Computed example of a mutant assay.
Amino acid sequence: MLTAERRQFILEILRRDKKVLSSELSAVLKVSEDTIRRDLRELAETGLLQRVHGGALLSSPATASYADRIQQAPIEKEAIARAAAKLVLPGQVVILDGGTTTLQVARHLPIDLQATVITNSPPIAVALAEHPHIEVVMLGGQLYKKALVNIGAATVEALRMIRADLCMLGVCSLHPEVGISVTNLNEAHVKQAMIKSAAEVVGLVTAAKLDTAAPYVVASIHALSYLVTAPVVPLEVLTSYKDLGLTIIREDIDSATIIDSEAPVYKSIID
């Protein structure tokens, strides 16, 4: 088998199984593990996968610019935003992380909601500027232009002074074993600080980001109180997350579906 054919086979197995192991690929393809590691390394350099110890996982899709990402999966993001906005209660202090999905959450907050929103995202601050009853607190720092969020030591230090009721976390990658991960180290530090500053954390995850990994780990799955995703995600994909104790929320136009009958906000309608 030619090198190109072997690497295409690896990618096909990865898309099917969501992960590959070097030892198994070596046995199936009848080449050394050194050859497989070289294949994985070169595929990782092109952004087609994320190497982990012993193999590889699907790579994060959140590598495009903010302008490009805002065009991706708009229907999914709107469904996620509708569901997530219902978790915000009157009078709460809420951290809204940056991202195109969290921007939709800001736009779906009720017009009569009285709350305080703390964000490191200039687009979110602008979106809430005309909201009559929401106080907006903008976190300073260095603007990370690719994601349009403020990051750095000043952002982290400001978050240490905050005790929020809820954090809406924009998730770059989510995997049952790896946890929450991102593509930028400084952004990882900010997200860690957001998690530590909130009583409950809501992970907002489109289908393409589930079962993927990025270079910098933010926290384990257990840092999340809720996982809000889109109705296009099959239930079997969510099983491993439910088994880890997450309250999983999905919503379509007409109804909400939740996988956890003990959740306080929604009534379960799963058969």
Rank of each mutant, 00 (worst) to 15 (best):
V205L: 08
A256C: 11
T239W: 11
S255Q: 15
I221R: 07
A219P: 01
T257M: 13
D211E: 07
Y216T: 08
I259R: 02
V233K: 13
A219N: 03
L244P: 01
T239N: 10
R250M: 12
A263F: 01
P231S: 08
I248A: 06
V232E: 15
L210P: 08
S240R: 13
K242C: 10
P264T: 07
S220V: 01
L204T: 10
V205K: 08
S220E: 09
E262F: 08
L224Q: 06
V233R: 14
T257S: 09
A230K: 00
V218G: 02
V205M: 05
P234Y: 12
D243N: 15
I221G: 06
L210V: 12
D254K: 10
L235I: 13
A208I: 08
A207E: 13
L210S: 12
S225T: 14
D260F: 00
A208E: 15
P231R: 06
L244K: 11
V218D: 00
G245F: 02
V218I: 04
K242N: 05
E236Y: 11
V265Q: 13
V233S: 15
S225N: 06
L235N: 14
Y216D: 14
E262Y: 04
V233G: 12
A208V: 08
T229D: 02
D252I: 00
I258N: 04
S225E: 03
L227Y: 00
S261T: 12
H222T: 03
